[in-house]
Amino acid sequence: MPSTVTRDRRALLVIPATALLLVAFVYPVFWLLLRSVSDPVWGAHNYATALGEVIYLKVLWNTVAISGATTVFCLLFGYPMAYTMVHAGPAAKRILIYIVLIPFWTSILVRTFAWLVLLQPKGLINDMLLGIGLIAEPLELIYNRTGVLIGMVQILLPFMVFPLFSVLSRIDDGYMKAAANLGAPPLPAFFRVYLPLSLPGVLTGCMLVFIISLGYFITPALLGGRRDIMVAQLIQEQIDLFGNWGLSAALAMILLAGTALIFTVTYKVFGVKPDIRA
């Protein structure tokens, strides 16, 4: 049978990519894991430091708090947006998709830089607010958590909108019509019929935004305050400034474990298939 031979031989094509990933990805991450328990001496002391000392715990807590807030804001903005996209006419839908898609394809660095320009004390946003007399003093919009959140929510919004869009566009409008016909006012009908049907999209979107936020580096580094850093900045700082591989590696492994845990819980418990292509 030529077909069986073909199948077996084609299976070999997976080898080069897998070998490359094993050497240049799996091994390096494993190497980092080893550093966390062996640098400078063997033991769990790096984990004890990362999880025991107030300054590091505060960074971990910051990371969770900023990621959580980013996720909530993305959901609040993303849901109505996805809803509008689904119910827009074909032309408007196309435009809206591109409005989400273009920033999605744009470098995070470029988008963060744009916020850096806009949020300055003498930036466009403060100028506008001062100009219309809404504020008397420039607002502190940058180098603090406000700046980080404004930037991160905008940058991560597509990761919320796309999963929501794909789930919402599969919801049959008939359900809402049926609810209305049965006498349900729009709002209860939405919360009891539409929202539950859209939950898989909400979960996927929230999970994606949250786990991507956890490891975020560029945006908090450029828009955030020096004393209000996230874990990725701490990892970079510890390696770059202090050569502290043990602690950095431990922090990296804690971040990895957190990410993996959330990913698995969403996948297994809620039975949502995370579409990591967004």
Partner: peptide, 9 residues
């Protein structure tokens, strides 16, 4: 995997 981890590794 968070890209910062890949970067450090």
């Amino acid at each position: 995997v968070p890209v910062i981890i890949t970067a450090a590794a």
